Simulated scan of single mutants.
Amino acid sequence: MSEITIQTPDDWHLHFRDNDMLLETVPATARCFQRAIVMPNLVPPITTAEMAVKYQQRILAARPQGSSFEPLMTIYLTNSTSEADIEAAKSAGVVAAKLYPAGATTNSDAAVTNLAAMTPVFEKMEELGLLLLVHGEVTEQHIDIFDREKVFIEQNLSNIVTRHPNLKVVFEHITTADAADFVLESSDKVAATITPQHLMLNRNDLLVGGIRPHNYCLPVLKRQTHQQRLLDVVQSGSAKFFLGTDSAPHEKHRKESACGCAGCYSAWSAIELYTQVFDELNVLDKLEAFASHHGADFYGLPRNNGTITLVKEDWQVPAQIKLPGGDDIVPFYAGKTVHWKVKG
């Protein structure tokens, strides 16, 4: 197959950042995605309905002229989040709340430290139909970074889904066989997003031949056996898994430093790379459901009306991109050849 047309896809997990960065990140996503779930871990984090609405307005202002791209907003859960905050968020059109264990990833220091105390908040979300999006890692220093997703499932996530059986939970950017199997074994209220980097790479791509800072993300890349399990569930066509890039931009100097930031900025090539993966797995017939159907269905939103067409054509991801503020950013897969391209 040298050309494929699919319903316009959505990105069910990404980071736009804020201010001048939006002039780069919003158009890069809007070029091929109709909607995107926008992460709230700014500084300060988006913790209220009012903050979410104002952030949405800044994103809409950065859309290309004529674009109908729609940002879907989330709020950031903290120890202080109340049931009233959840009610206000729902009334303002916020679709989900994000659970970051404190210190798990970029700008997560203000996040939840006591999951047990969140029970009333989860109950209100369950009642109102607000989804819970989970960064599923524990943060205790004595737990190996490669085991933190597995331990989070055992210590936390299994309890949440048991105690709140009607709460829709998205296990974000899963990286392990443990996570894939947990989602498959859970009820139809539990689903997961999978990133392009976790389908294409494993920890050898981070550490062999020198540290590769632009492949560093959180959750960190895992061993090849876990990568293969993610490929297996994608290949299966299960409706429990859908597209979420976790596209997360950082300036080049913040990635290439003594304490480099976590995140892969994949918006420039995401849908093309997913297509390449599905082509290599010989399941291009399952791409549309993964990219355009499963996420919308799980969120209870209508599928998009439009289409995009991808053609089998080689092109090269830019080595770096100049940001509006003058800094450079290195996109995911920088300088490498991608074998599929959005037509037009």
Rank of each mutant, 00 (worst) to 15 (best):
S67E: 13
R17A: 00
A192H: 04
V169P: 01
I75G: 00
Q320N: 14
I174G: 01
H294R: 04
D285K: 04
G295A: 10
S187P: 05
R63N: 13
L22T: 01
R148W: 03
Q141C: 07
E185I: 09
H135I: 01
V190R: 00
T5F: 05
L273R: 13
H214M: 12
E83T: 15
V190P: 00
T309P: 05
I4T: 11
I37M: 14
A61M: 10
G326C: 06
L132K: 06
I75H: 01
I308P: 08
I329S: 02
Q141K: 15
K312V: 09
N159E: 12
V43F: 10
S269T: 13
P9V: 08
Q57P: 02
T48V: 06
L323H: 10
K252M: 10
I308S: 09
K343S: 14
P9M: 09
V330Q: 00
T8A: 10
A334K: 00
L287N: 08
K98G: 00
L131W: 09
V220P: 04
T47S: 07
Q224A: 14
D314Y: 02
P213K: 05
G136P: 03
N202P: 09
G335V: 08
H164E: 07
G263N: 04
K312I: 05
G260E: 10
Y333L: 12
L199M: 14
V342L: 15
S82T: 15
M118T: 08
R254M: 13
L128D: 07
P219L: 04
A319E: 15
L130D: 02
D20W: 07
L201G: 00
D18E: 12
P44I: 07
F69N: 06
L14E: 00
V342M: 11
G260Y: 10
V53G: 08
F146D: 11
A110I: 00
V134G: 06
Q235W: 02
Y100Q: 02
P27K: 11
H339Y: 08
D181Q: 15
E126K: 06
P165M: 07
Y333D: 10
P44Y: 06
R58G: 06
C259N: 14
R63Q: 14
I160W: 04
L301W: 10
E272K: 01
T309I: 06
G260D: 03
V94S: 06
I271V: 14
H13C: 01
A84Q: 15
A177T: 12
D285P: 02
E272G: 04
M1N: 12
S257A: 15
S236G: 13
T162Y: 15
L230M: 01
P165N: 10
A258D: 15
P44W: 07
F146T: 08
A248D: 03
S68M: 09
G244W: 01
E185F: 11
K341R: 15
K322W: 04
T275A: 13
Y216C: 10
W340K: 04
I174V: 13
A36P: 01
D11E: 02
H164S: 05
Q155Y: 07
Q65W: 05
P165G: 08
D232M: 03
R35G: 03
F69M: 12
D181V: 14
L23T: 02
A319R: 12
F33N: 10
A52R: 07
P318T: 11
N19G: 05
P196C: 06
